[in-house]
Amino acid sequence: MGWFKRIQEGITTKSTEKKEIPEGAWYKCPGCKNVVTSQEFAGTLNVCATCGHHERIGSAEYFEVLFDGGKFREVAAKMVSADPLEFKDTTDYKSRLEKAQKKTELEDAIRTASGELDGLPVVISAMDFSFIGGSMGSVVGEKIARGIDLALKKQCPYICISKSGGARMMEAGLSLMQMAKTSARLSLLAQARLPYISVLTDPTTGGVTASFAMLGDLNIAEPNALIGFAGPRVVRETIGKDLPEGFQRSEFLLEHGFLDAIVERKDLKSKIAFYLRAMYDAPMGEEKVG
């Protein structure tokens, strides 16, 4: 703990004034400030080659990393959120959704797809933090449920890559119950003895942590990902104490018994393939020889 810890940030930017960083030709690592071309950075799977910082990526990138040849078939790609509560805060939920859809070119905060991983049939869901903080509303819950149903139908493993701020406030109780719904469906997968690997990435918090993200047969995380139930700010304010270094990071969770392993993005596919082969016998003829 530093004695001269800065209590107040030197520059405070109001959230309304925050600007989206434009897609540029360069990437500057927020950890070690190393600068590389965007092309080089993509080549290292958006991981800083100098300090190992894992930049947040979305479903498109994870599908590219995990599916053989980047080939997959998406499930319910066009499913969009309804607004049954006609929720309104500073702006109404509908226009918030439209804005997010326009900005991200995504329909919601998750995508589900089936394909092959190292020759094994799999269904993968991957969350997009860029869509309203990866928050879980009815669409996220339903797409996970559909993914599990498909895995049950194909008798194959299910993988979910979590990256979320938690439940989506604008769907209130409906959002809360997605925790129960996804867990209910996972119980069916468990009963069928099909492997479920949960991949926790930066950040995974709130209702997502308190449901499907922590329920993997194996829970694995990328390095230094923020993982927790209550956010660090809430914890700090509640207990009125500074938080220990590394609190709620992947390494902290590993030490406290909640993760099976921390896996770097470059090893994600090969490690998942290893785990799946240990737990799963592909139906005859489905697995490639060699």
């Binding site: 030490e255 993760l259 099976d260 392993a261």
Partner: peptide
């Protein structure tokens, strides 16, 4: 591949 943790308090 080693697997860690008791999912309760510690590895």
């Amino acid at each position: 591949e080693e697997l860690h943790g008791d999912r309760t308090v510690k590895d």
